[in-house]
Design a protein around this nucleic acid. Structure first.
Length: 295
DNA sequence: AGCCAGGTGGCTA
DNA sequence: TAGCCACCTGGC
């Protein structure tokens, strides 16, 4: 489709001493975002909004990026997306791994794992698509949404950005069904309508406390506690949001012995045990759980 | 060939 | 509040 893309030379982003190939890989492919793929060993290509870049992490922890010459992306934008402005080493050091063997082993397995700083609108769309789906399938939905309803990154570009909420509000449920959304189509459509009727809703979330934001987000059709927490953690940079999905539930039961606890009880445990950076701890535990299941 | 997936919403007791 | 079930669909 169209001209081959001419990529810029690799540009050094930063030397990150605490990164590991595993941590880097998991950050991009582990289910925080769904438009990343591994092009070749340790070289990743991904899209968010209208940015399209390649990333690689050398063994020494040096992170480099490249962009299509036709459509430059600033290093500042990439650094922001990767959360380089946050003191991850300090943050991870504050997690309770010293008294928590499960967390300790997860952190040991994925050094440098971090939380991407994604745009809220796209994150909401992503996790509306995520219910009852595996990462592969969520990724396919994203490709279809971008292809069918999104706009090309530039004139003649081979890839498109995801449809914005105004575009989704105009789209028909049939359009969304074509993107393999299944029963999620009407949820996305309903959310798009809600956002049209409540201009500034997504922005207003920024001023809310995490707890208030959690309640507000659940006004949207298709958004329950799990999706709300994912949107807050990945899309609003709320590191205290702790999504409880089936993987984490299994860990809380097996590694922490919390069989039979109610959702509310689990939330209280998580808050008390993992604290204000719970979402970061959650990602380590999640990565560990997924790794363990692969064999 | 089925089964099941990083949930949610509606309904019942 | 807790428990149960339908919901679209396509990898594995």
């Amino acid at each position: 489709m169209g001209q081959p893309v001419d990529w810029s030379p690799w540009e050094i982003l930063e030397e990150v001493s605490d990164f590991s190939p595993e941590g880097f890989r998991e950050t991009l492919l582990g289910g925080q975002a769904f438009r990343w793929l591994e092009k070749e060993s340790a070289v990743y290509e991904g899209i968010w909004e209208d940015s399209w870049i390649r990333l690689r992490c050398k063994d020494n922890g040096r992170v480099e990026f490249a962009f299509p010459r036709a459509h430059p992306v600033s290093s500042a934008a990439v650094k922001n997306y990767l959360g380089f402005h946050l003191p991850w080493q300090t943050l991870t050091d504050q997690l309770p791994f010293r008294s928590d063997p499960a967390l300790d082993s997860a952190m040991f397995a994925f050094p440098g794992l971090r939380i991407l700083q994604q745009p809220a609108g796209e994150t909401l769309l992503s996790f509306l698509c995520s219910s009852n789906k595996q990462i592969v399938q969520i990724r396919q939905m994203h490709e279809a949404l971008a292809r069918e309803l999104g706009t090309p990154l530039w004139r003649g570009a081979p890839v498109s950005r995801l449809p914005t909420w105004p575009i989704l509000a105009e789209a028909s449920e049939e359009d969304l069904l074509r993107c393999r959304l299944g029963y999620r189509a009407k949820l996305v459509k309903g959310t798009a309508t809600y956002l049209t009727e409540h201009p500034g809703f997504l922005e207003s979330i920024e001023d809310f406390s995490t707890e208030e934001a959690r309640v507000a987000l659940q006004e949207l059709p298709g958004v329950g506690p799990k999706v709300a927490d994912c949107v807050l953690l990945f899309g609003y940079q709320r590191l205290d949001a702790f999504p409880i999905d089936t993987w984490i539930l299994k860990i809380l039961e097996e590694a922490y012995g919390l069989f039979g606890w109610s959702r509310k009880q689990l939330e209280q445990f998580v808050q008390a045990h993992f604290g204000k950076l719970g979402g970061l701890a959650q990602q380590f535990l999640f990565a560990q759980a997924r790794a363990g299941r692969k064999r």
